[in-house]
Structure formats: structure tokens, C-alpha cells
Amino acid sequence: MNEQHKKRRGPSTKISADGKRRLFKECRNNFGSAREVGLLFGVTDSSVRKTEDGDSTPNLLNAFMYSIFFGKPLEELFPDLFSIAVENVRKLKTME
């Protein structure tokens, strides 16, 4: 793949290999089961567990709602995504 094509593809959205979201899981456990949280947010318990494990990413609205509901900043609930965003912005700035 040539450099021009790489630049046009845009930033990566992959979740890091060790994407476990420990604070998210801790907050969810403190509240109740994955099923209970899922019912509140209109998602399945499987979706909540996949989000905890970093196997899935919530949509933007749910991410903000989790942050508000649990009283924690997005970058603490989803540190893997925050790190990816920081790295992607750094790369974008070097393309200027």
C-alpha cells in the first residue's frame, strides 16, 4: 500500500489487544448485573459484557450516557479508545 493511500484511509478505529475496561466493569458491578445495565440502556447483556471486555464499542450516545450514569469521564471508562484517539490525532497532526 502506498503512502498516499495510507493517508487517505484516515485514523484507525481498532480496539487495543488488552482493551479490558476495568473501571467500566467495576462501575457496572457496583450497580448490578450486565442484564440490568443492558435493560436501562436498551442493549443486551452480551453487549454490555463485550463493551467491558473491549470486544465492542458503544455508540457515542451510549458512551456519554455511561459516563454520566456512572459519574466517570469517558477517558477513564474507555481508556483504550482514548489512547487510540490521542495516537490518531498525533498522526493526523504530522500529516499537516
Rank of each mutant, 00 (worst) to 15 (best):
L74K: 01
T51F: 02
M1V: 06
K91L: 15
K6S: 15
P58M: 12
V86Y: 11
A85L: 09
V89Y: 07
L81K: 04
R21W: 02
H5Q: 13
V37R: 01
F78Q: 06
R22V: 15
I15Y: 11
G19H: 11
T44E: 01
N59E: 10
H5R: 13
D18E: 10
K20P: 01
P73A: 12
S47W: 04
K14Y: 13
F70T: 01
F24N: 05
F64W: 06
D45N: 04
K50M: 13
M65T: 04
D55M: 11
R9I: 13
M95A: 04
V89M: 08
M65H: 08
K25T: 07
L77P: 04
D55S: 13
G42I: 05
F24V: 03
F69Q: 00
F78S: 06
E26C: 10
S33G: 02
C27L: 09
V86P: 09
E26Q: 12
L92H: 12
D53P: 09
V48G: 04
I68H: 14
R9P: 03
N29I: 15
N88L: 06
L92R: 10
A34N: 10
N2C: 10
E87W: 04
G19V: 09
M65Y: 03
S46T: 11
E52N: 00
N88P: 05
D45Y: 02
D80C: 05
D45F: 02
P58K: 08
S46A: 08
I84H: 05
G32R: 03
D18V: 05
M1Q: 02
D45M: 04
P79A: 03
G32Y: 03
R9S: 14
E36Q: 15
E52S: 00
G38R: 05
L40I: 07
F78W: 12
L61A: 14
K72S: 05
T13S: 00
F69R: 00
